[in-house]
Design a protein around this nucleic acid. Structure first.
Length: 505
RNA sequence: GGGCAAGUGGCGAAGAGGUUAACGCUGCGGACUGCAAAUCCGCCAUGCGCCGGUUCAAAUCCGGCCUUGCCCUCCA
């Protein structure tokens, strides 16, 4: 089974063969840190994090580089508004970035280089580009000359003429060609600036990625990723600079781009003001649900966001979570159990589980088709639920061994997508008054003692024990009253053959 | 204006020439349950934007049209 990926450069799905056998080197364009990230940013992060996780699942060692753009117009403007130092502002939002990314279970990159810490390398690259005649200097600015690089346009698939025809921007008259872009910008007053052969200034946006990718991954690394909107001009320019600079090709071997998050079918963007901040979403939605939502559509397709669709994702996801809980319950969380002789049904079950695992891998192998992979997870969950809940189910040591293994596999697949159920939210202090009130109201009928624990978790246990006793005595009225009362406050009770189970909505 | 995608059941979303068009949500019916919940089983697209064409065979390939989104400007 081999992995195939869609390469923007060739516009085809290709077999993925990394340059070195067991290692993948990948670079993903990270954020410009001048504010909190929104759901659109999160999609790119989650998509490439999932790609990375799957590559690791397949046994590759992944060297993952994600940069921070901490020198940029937007940062400078924002800093000016707030009256703070631009680099300090950028540093602050790098911290905020990690808070959100960690919450979303984005694994940290192997290296997170910052533009501000690679100025010397960028200056050197620009110097070489000037020397080789790919760039020219005007006043204190240095521009890359797109005409000097014949392959310009190969990633975005358009010719210079086409791009010129569509040009809608006012052009800097000093440029030789309207599409030439800045490698170095002369400093304006009060801007962060560094000394260079062309006077004080700062690097243009595109050069940082070329330089840092080559520095950490070497030329000709495996995967370069980012959002769709980076194809042009950012990645096109990265290629031009990097390949002109080294005189070699290709700069990166596979170019992967994710589609956009839209809101009411319109791109989620800061200028339209229709963006949703990850920090805020995380207050209401568990990270697993947000990731499930983002991965329920293929990464290259557009994804329309709404609160309703998040709610749907939550319903869908709870099926998977319920199966994890069922497996935990039935295996008692044991990790290692010796195998034994299996019944015919158990053998069949084991084989079906294997088939669904293969289904998951085939889906992911086909250009990371997470939507299809999730379908495989649902099939697997159904198989597990059916097996464990069948009428003649009997737990033997051999069956336990199988279920322990199945639980491990199931969790492993969920982990590829980063959607292993988190610690089920514990009962916080906010449940105290609610539980105490219920205990007071139903305490007499339930035969509760005078002294009740004050800790919500313990209090609930006491209530459930009393309810159990009531049910044994067929006092269903009070048992149901307690269940209804708890439900009203978001605590769901489920009576199973193995005892009562509770969860928070 | 130029370039690139996409249009699949009530909704979301896979499928890219050939078995009954996955999977999930919602709804309905059934099983299980003291009743629920969870779970399981079943039902809900004679049809995949529209019109032509290629083919023994088309959601899938080709052409035209319509609609929507993205890029051409900082943006994931």
């Amino acid at each position: 089974m081999s992995l195939r990926v869609y390469n923007t450069l060739t516009k085809k799905k290709e077999d993925f063969v990394p340059a070195s056998p067991r290692q993948v080197r990948m670079y993903v364009c990270g954020p410009t840190t001048y504010n909190y990230i929104h759901l659109g940013n999160a999609r790119a992060l989650v998509v490439f994090d999932t790609i990375r996780r799957y590559l690791e699942y397949k046994g590759y060692r992944v060297f993952y580089v994600q940069n921070f753009t901490d020198v940029d117009d937007k940062i400078i403007n924002r800093a000016a508004e707030e009256g703070v130092d631009p680099l300090e502002l950028a540093e602050r939002y790098i911290g905020e970035y990690f808070r959100d990314a960690d919450a979303l279970r984005i694994k940290r990159a192997t290296v997170h280089p910052k533009a501000s810490e690679h100025i010397a390398e960028m200056i050197e690259a620009i110097r070489v580009l000037l020397e080789k005649g790919f760039a020219y200097q005007v006043d204190g600015d240095v521009f890359f000359s797109v005409r000097s690089f014949p392959e310009y346009g190969k990633l975005s698939g358009r010719s210079l003429e086409e791009m010129l025809a569509g040009a809608r921007v006012e052009v800097d008259q000093r440029k030789k060609d309207p599409l030439d872009f800045a490698l170095w910008k002369a400093a304006k007053p009060d801007e962060p600036a560094w000394e260079s052969p062309w006077g004080k200034g700062r690097p243009g946006w595109h050069i940082e990625c070329s330089v840092m990718a080559i520095k950490y991954l070497g030329f000709g690394f495996d995967i370069h990723g980012g959002g769709n909107d980076l194809i042009f001009p950012h990645h096109e320019n990265e290629i031009a600079q990097a390949e002109a600079y080294t005189g070699k090709s290709p700069f990166a071997r596979y170019w992967l781009h994710n589609g956009f998050v839209t809101v009411n079918e319109e791109k989620m963007s800061k200028s339209l003001g229709n963006f949703f901040i990850v920090r805020e979403l995380l207050q209401e939605w568990p990270p697993e649900v947000i990731r499930f939502f983002l991965l329920s559509t293929h990464y290259r397709s557009p994804l329309d966001f709404s609160v309703d669709s998040l709610a749907t994702a939550r319903s869908s996801y709870s099926r998977l979570r319920n199966t994890v809980e069922l497996l935990e319950e039935v295996t008692g969380g044991q990790e290692v159990v010796p195998p034994g002789r299996l019944s015919r049904e158990a053998v069949e079950f084991r084989d079906q589980v294997s088939a669904h695992i293969a289904e998951f891998e085939e889906a992911m192998d086909d250009d990371f088709n997470t939507a299809l992979a999730i379908a495989a997870l649902f099939n697997l969950a159904r198989q597990i639920n059916s097996f464990v809940n069948r009428k003649d189910f009997s737990m033997t040591p051999a069956v336990l061994h199988v279920l322990v293994r199945v639980r491990q596999y199931f969790l492993q697949l969920l982990d590829v997508l980063g959607i292993v159920p988190g610690e089920s939210r514990s009962l916080g202090e906010e449940f105290c008054p609610v539980l105490e009130e219920i205990a007071k109201k139903l305490g007499g009928e339930l035969g509760l003692p005078e002294e009740l624990p004050s800790e919500p978790q313990k209090l609930l246990e006491v209530l459930l024990q009393a309810r159990d006793e009531a049910r044994r005595q067929k006092n269903y009225q009070v048992a149901d009253a307690l269940r209804d009362a708890l439900r009203e406050h978001g605590i769901i009770l489920e009576d199973t053959p193995r005892g009562v189970r509770w969860r928070i909505v």
